[in-house]
Design a protein around this nucleic acid. Sequence first.
DNA 1: ATGACATATGAGATATGA
Length: 261
Amino acid sequence: MRIATWNVNSIKAHLEAVTTWLKEAQPDVVCLQEIKCENAGFPSFEMEALGYACAIHGQKTYNGVAILSRLPLEDVQRGLPGDASDEQSRFIVATVIDGAHAVRVASLYLPNGNPAPGPKYDYKLAWMDRLRAFASQALKQEEALVLAGDYNVIPEARDAKNPQLWKDDALFLPPTHARFSELTSLGLVEAFRSLHPLTEGAYSFWDYQAGAWQKNNGIRIDHHLLSPQAADQLVSVDIHKHVRAWEKPSDHVPVVIELRA
DNA sequence: ATGACATATGAGATATGA
């Protein structure tokens, strides 16, 4: 089973890139972030025409996440537990059924958190605490679990072209790293780094500004975190970098893991 | 140091992003 994560920076603005990539890459499951539309505005018809069922947790203008799947989706939950007052659509989780095999898959869009310090950074850290609580509960099932999305976390210096530029940024500050480490301490495995421990220069986001793409001035912030049962099935992780060079691209590219059946 | 670029809303300028 191949499971992708992709922050599309508006599903409507980048629909052509999305459909082109789906036809080319043929992923089984796609976790989308920043769809920037309400559920009713999501191009479900176009996705279904390509063979994908859609589970959507949308929002007007900002945020919004979805899961596309060629395999049946069950037990869809929308929203990250832990704060009933949180109205931002940043989390959806569903079970993908592949015959006798099942994988619980989440699509998450972790808050950016800038400027830090400030209320936006406080929200980011609180959201990460809620994600840890969710993961802690889910791991008790001892099943294959994939938490995929735009984490807005640069895990290490080697995950940025110019790490010194990020030292005071919400994506790289020590409290951010501390909470990301809490996730891995629970037993979750960051898929790309587990298979490529020493690789440098592998990024998933390049800013639209200042020729960042042309200079490969990127950061790696789109991740799959795997339960031990999913990590045992991990075959490969591929960053589809070429998509960033397309006409009218998202500023993020798809990242795809393969799990053996 | 600043802005550069892109998106949504809504019809100009502002909020957000990373």
